[in-house]
Design a protein around this nucleic acid. Structure first.
Lengths: 144, 144
DNA sequence: TTGATCTACCGAATCTCATTCTGCATAGTA
DNA sequence: TACTATGCAGAATGAGATTCGGTAGATCAA
């Protein structure tokens, strides 16, 4: 992981469809050498995958909320329960008064309510506190 | 936006490096027709960009925290102030007692503290409440 | 210092795939 | 019915991914 690798990651985060020749030119390498570096970044797991960024609003997921989940028992192994709710985009175990923090996307607040209901149904969950997002300033990749 | 488009989005979210011929086979279209559909999805902004997913821990961003930001004034137009802090990965205006919610990634809790200091320095910010993530169950793309 | 080994690179060859184009079929519309 | 727009298949073409051989530099041990 030297500086060239970091530059490549930045460039690929911006546009992963850029040809290796162009990438290489940007960092001062040949296409072949660039390809080899990117291959190793994948191999090491630094690059998890190549993906497309979908506009949530364009696919009917205009409502965004963060939900603090309180629990009366250990939540460390109920990741699957959260994962089973497709509207949950992220789920984290947190330090502090609540036990988990999840990020939820739905098309309506009605559906958000339904998601909260399903979260309540998880064993040990004793309460939720939902925070609705009014406007998203930005969401961007990990900064290098 | 029919069902085939949605299938294509799912497949591309999983692996955007898949050839159009393979995509097409999966949804029952030719490579050319698949290409055309994906082109239009980009054109309409449904697909924002093609990118790589980087493992935060692998690039020294092992600390994740969510920060509730309280403000004494309207925060609706201070998006740039948050954006200027590179450790902030997301920033949202929220309903509720706090005014904004930001997602922060740093390499150490020391640096997290420094980010909090810089958030305080934003005009109108009167308080922060940081929640440190102990474990991330999952982070996944928008569910279709 | 010398030799062996390993790594990273370049440049070229090859082969896959993206992209474009033609023609056809279907659906919608005047 | 005639016209128009849209979406598709299939093929042609060129761009780019991927592989490979060979070289330079770095590291390490003798």
């Amino acid at each position: 992981m030297d500086d060239i690798d970091r530059q490549l990651l930045v460039l690929l985060q911006q546009d992963a469809s850029r040809p290796y020749a162009a990438l290489g030119e940007a960092v001062g390498l040949s296409a072949g050498a660039t390809h080899e570096r990117v291959r190793k970044l994948r191999e090491r797991g630094v690059i998890r995958r190549t993906t497309v960024e979908v506009d949530p609003a364009a696919v009917g997921q205009g409502v965004l909320a963060f939900v603090m989940v309180e629990s009366t028992r250990w939540v460390g192994d109920s990741g699957d329960r959260f994962s089973a709710i497709p509207e949950i985009q992220e789920a984290h175990v947190i330090a502090g008064s609540a036990s988990a923090l999840v990020k939820v996307r739905t098309s309506t607040t009605q559906q958000l309510q339904d998601v909260l209901r399903r979260i309540y149904a998880i064993d040990g969950v004793s309460g939720t506190q939902a925070t609705v997002v009014l406007e998203t300033f930005f969401e961007r990749p990990v900064t290098l």
